[in-house]
Design a binder for these strands. Structure first.
Lengths: 147, 147
DNA sequence: CGGTAAATCACCCGAAAGTATGAGTTGCAG
DNA sequence: CTGCAACTCATACTTTCGGGTGATTTACCG
């Protein structure tokens, strides 16, 4: 779980930097007007937004939004995936692909780069013996990998 | 959309209560020590946590609609097609598209040129309000146009 | 401690897909 | 006959996909 702590450090560091920025912000603007309430409100609002962002990122891997739902129709059990050598991540991409999302959109939803999505899709196409994403989706449905 | 506003009210109310708590917190403890930095830091930390919580809530709610229940049973009757303005020829192209064929393959199977297929697909995408063929196929299945 | 698989990202390049526009042909209803 | 909708095709252009290759970082297994 090294990566996890790395993330924590990263977020912590970012928050630290933001606190520094807040100090500057405070002395340059707020204290001059002696508006403590406004200042605190701004801080609260800002960090709520930051928190939402951080939260979405931290929970992104754990909640598996799409996976959880499609699961009801077709359980992505490891045995089924293993039959065709699909990794969990590749399966996630496959699901988003089946919903008609572009590579760019998939990258955004999974918080990875466009190139990473392309790599995943390449191996999906290879493993499902398909040449196009539409064909991969069709084959996956026939195989029972997708509802 | 009643539930949505109920959520907003709930979150808003909670935040309001927290702000009140902050006031008490401030006067009873922080300002006595004249520790503005600590106070702001506490606010930032607290609202980051709140943000994470709110973010997870919002995310949890958003993931639901993604559940696109695929409706099977799809008779390609003319009435159904007419609803979305699809012509018979466009429906043929849509079916082949759903099977994962490329534009070139579709052109070959329908004995028309590649450009004609592109034209048909363009209007299909337009009529189904999709931007990609995979999305068009997905929407068509949800609408019951495809099995 | 190595070896391995998974996941991530980058760069290049050609092919496929999609957009926009125009236009010719048919068949049919008014 | 005229207008319209469907079908066809083309040209030019932009964007997206997909293949190929290589690299790094983790996590896990023996």
């Amino acid at each position: 779980m090294k990566k996890y702590w790395l993330n924590v450090l990263w977020y912590g560091g970012s928050l630290g930097l933001l606190l520094v920025a807040l100090q500057v912000f405070k002395y340059k603007w707020v204290l001059l007007k002696n508006d403590l309430e406004g200042y605190v409100g701004a801080v609260a609002l800002m960090f709520t937004v930051i928190g939402i962002w951080v939260g979405s990122r931290l929970l992104a891997g754990k909640t598996q939004p799409v996976a959880a739902i499609v699961t009801r129709h077709s359980p992505p059990d490891k045995a089924l995936l293993a039959k065709h050598g699909l990794t969990p991540r590749e399966y996630e991409v496959l699901q988003l692909m089946a919903l008609g999302h572009s590579n760019q959109e998939i990258a955004g939803q999974l918080y990875v780069s466009l190139n990473t999505v392309k790599t995943h899709i390449s191996s999906i196409l290879s493993k499902l013996d398909a040449e196009r994403r539409t064909q991969a989706v069709q084959k996956a449905k026939v195989l029972g990998l997708l509802p």
